[in-house]
Design a protein around this nucleic acid. Structure first.
Lengths: 152, 152
DNA sequence: GCAAAAAGCAAGAAATTATTCGGAAGAATT
DNA sequence: AATTCTTCCGAATAATTTCTTGCTTTTTGC
């Protein structure tokens, strides 16, 4: 499936605010309500729109600490990488997990209540995973920008 | 404003899927439609729900490269930090910007079409910002997990 | 170059959902 | 005990979504 200019505009709008009604969007895009509706349906079905979610204020819900952890593994075979990915993904504290090119193996973004909770997570969950060699953690002092919308 | 158990369940549901109708939610939470509606309204008004957005498939929309850049500044005065934050936040390629504790100053998550686009961004936009001393970039090979929902 | 097929769109009808309102029940405060 | 405050509910209605139909435009094959 190929996107035309209207699809792109539509995706960009929904990326910023998914609460807009089909009617509002139809006015902005100069299309009919039915046309917009069909396009959205198609974009969801074809996987361009993966999901629509509410973004919460993390401080307010008690997530006070964000940290980035660089994880080095002891080995780099297919099985080791796969097992680590599988296990680390199960932790609710791990918001993001990336395999990296360069000097370390994985980068994790970890969200916890506070430093103490992070400490428990590191000692009892992350560090005890098999194949983990070392973990280097950097803590976030302040969040300047945090976007979910891509510019394309 | 304090959250009760129903609020927390509600937020957790909306974090995973914000397309659910008030009726569906009311069935899951064993409350009336009106009660759920009022709670959502209140949670939005009080800022617990910051926004609701569509999450797109980044590969499909042509965002092929994610990278993390660690930025070191030349100075660390209030003005320098502020100016850097302000300028770097304007770049659409910068999805996230965090001031860090530890050995580097800022951590950026950068989304671009490909390596060439990243290169242009680095040379023409990021590296030429005033006060930037060095930039160290790590590229993402694969995305194992990417969540927007906090577990609280 | 023309006809058939396909895709896209607007308008309206039907189904569903969001929103508002009055009032009841319970908890907290005085 | 009275009062205020909050939360909740059901019902009414306002609005929106969703689907259908028919028309127009574009594409494809001959």
């Amino acid at each position: 499936m190929e996107l035309d200019l209207t699809d792109i505009k539509l995706l960009k709008l929904l990326q910023e605010d998914a609460t807009m009604s089909t009617k509002e969007i139809s006015l902005k895009l100069h299309k009919s309500i039915a046309a917009v509706h069909e396009r959205i349906k198609k974009l969801k079905k074809s996987g361009y729109i993966k999901k629509t979610v509410a973004i919460l204020d993390r401080q307010k819900i008690g997530i006070g600490l964000i940290s980035f952890s660089q994880v080095f593994l002891k080995a780099h075979t297919f099985e080791v990488l796969n097992e680590f990915e599988e296990e680390v993904s199960k932790f609710p504290e791990v918001m993001e997990c990336y395999q990296m090119a360069g000097s370390y193996d994985f980068m994790l973004r970890i969200a916890t209540k506070d430093m103490d909770t992070y400490h428990q997570f590191l000692r009892n969950k992350l560090a005890v995973l098999p194949h983990v060699n070392t973990v280097q953690t950097y803590f976030v002092l302040s969040e300047t920008k945090s976007e979910t919308a891509y510019h394309f």
